[in-house]
Design a protein around this nucleic acid. Structure first.
Lengths: 175, 175
DNA sequence: GGATTCATGTAAGAGGTTACATGATTAT
DNA sequence: ATAATCATGTAACCTCTTACATGAATCC
């Protein structure tokens, strides 16, 4: 199963909580994930089409008298499977923590999924191994700039590890 | 003067140290900025063309007997001006620190430019004001997830501020 | 004889962005 | 009256990526 862009999984996540049409999805994201995520309408409709093509979503049209017709999307079993695998897997890169990982925490909490604590732990483990690599490199590297870059990365990773242990853990464990 | 993508300024930065052709630029980036930046060849040649169109670069062809011809690029006064403005301006967003800001530090050091200390200070100031905004928001916000997101951002910003004061400062001040 | 270096690109696609288009309904 | 809400999209563009193309020269 090929990995897709995070935005697509976020859409699956919204639909994991129940069938919705495009406009509703947009509204939901704006209200709940607005601090992390932004999806433009044009991208939203394009992604929904793409995800339906992948077989992760299905849709039907609901005709209304007073309003434009709505196309209502819902998860297929494959879509659900893809989302569940994504939401419980740690980010591979530090840069993905700010948005993608936080969104995962949101969905876990919001959908009351199991495994939040384990996700935080495995994310910490990923970061620890990333940190080790950078520390090793820093020992071998001579160039001052490279040392600086590695130093910044290590500091950042450490900061995230502390935060994950202290805050993320609490967030997913409190019911 | 419209702001361009960071990669374009990085190319200007490489040429700020002397005229070079595409292949040389690639090599230079790989060796010196490899830990931060990657530019694919296809993008490189496209960007050089674009920057020449903007009037920031000029080029001439050097014909060789034993090797393919080289197109040698050099900065125009406008290009130099654009680069110098970029390299001394702090990043507006935290996400730009990891790559763009570090590259600025590299160029300042490598080209022995004045103003590195001031840049670090103004970057700290930008981060402090960003942090204040997030702290204010955190007070007003009710939603648990939004609080968490803001908390992560604040922690990250604080981490960068400490690092900038401790490490970046030294890097640019040591000759 | 085979890999690497030198040197330039094109083509196709991924994953976005902003701006534009439409048109009725409901709230102020 | 006019602004916001409901609801769907298209078109054009931007930045960057991967894969492909070419072809001589030199190193091992």
């Amino acid at each position: 199963m090929k990995t897709r862009a995070a935005t697509e999984y976020a859409l699956l996540g919204v639909l994991r909580g129940g069938a919705r049409h495009g406009y509703e999805i947009r509204h939901y994201i704006e209200v709940h994930l607005g601090s992390t995520w932004y999806v433009s309408t044009s991208q939203l409709y394009a992604l929904l089409k793409r995800l339906e093509g992948l077989g992760w979503l299905q849709s039907c049209v609901e005709i209304q008298q007073t309003r434009p017709s709505k196309r209502i999307f819902s998860l297929t079993p494959q879509g659900r499977k893809a989302f569940d695998a994504w939401v419980l897997s740690p980010a591979k890169h530090v840069r993905d923590l700010r948005v993608e990982f936080l969104a995962k925490l949101f969905f876990i909490k919001n959908l009351r999924l199991e495994g939040g604590g384990a996700l935080v732990e495995s994310q910490v483990a990923v970061l620890n191994s990333l940190k080790e690599k950078q520390v090793d490199m820093q020992k071998r590297v001579q160039d001052g700039f490279q040392k600086l870059v590695l130093d910044a990365r290590i500091a950042n990773i450490e900061c995230w590890i502390v935060w994950l242990r202290k805050k993320a853990n609490k967030f997913v464990s409190v019911k």
